[in-house]
Amino acid sequence: MATGFFTDSTLCIGCKACEVACKQWNELPSDGFEFTGNSYDNTSQLSGTTWRHVDFVERESVDAEGIATSWSMLSDVCKHCTHAGCLEACPTGAIIRNEFGSVFVQPDICNGCGYCVVSCPFGVIDLIEAVGRGDDAAKYSVATLHDDRLNERKTAVQATGGVAGKCTLCYDRQRVGMVPACAKACPTESIQFGEIDDLRERAKRRVETLQARGVDARLYGADDVGGGIGALNAFFLLTDSPEAYNLPAEPVLPSTRQAMGYAAAAFAALTLATIGWAIFRGEGGAA
């Protein structure tokens, strides 16, 4: 049974409860305290320690009645792709697909090589490189952790030079039948968790409803997104083009390029081997 998220931007009020509930449950540190000036978005992106991130898209348009403002918010998250770049890239097998169809990083296996980071077409997964506390490490302050848990995290992260981090779809909670922390917290049920087939149906009905109301609603990732990735287990309802929410319009699964790469390398190697053979062992070479 595959489970996932359907995140509906038309129900999002941008409260960021998902970000906090996620951090609280997964005991993740803050990513620093920097004002960006980008609307109400000061966490800016998904990171190794920010597994839900709310986009704030401000738009203005001028119509006959004056300036119309709109403000669309969307809680972004790991897409848990059907064919996941990070999972395919992972050389240790730390990233697996679990029994809920989610893409899960096993922190005890991950060696922090960072190959998954560059292999995600959505820029989701990242390394957690340090955990600290207090003024000396304010950027990563986990002022809220118990000492023993902080030490455990330090051992797992700091001493090893980093592990990859991203949404687990609350694997630990799902194991005991609980809903992921973000979906549970979300006050307006913009984040819905459930069996993926149900969610897709719900999403399609929702799009029809909204379109009937004249809303420019579209789904992202409910069906195959192309590029070999397939459908997304965490998909979205948008009211603007994907780029407005920092989502790729045409993502591509990186591993689809491997065959060509190996062929190109083989071509070069063969060419050079032939030339080398001629130089070293051919008529002229041996002479």
Partner: peptide, 8 residues
């Protein structure tokens, strides 16, 4: 459900 403050 909880808001961000409640979640913290």
């Amino acid at each position: 459900h909880l808001c961000p403050k409640g979640s913290a």
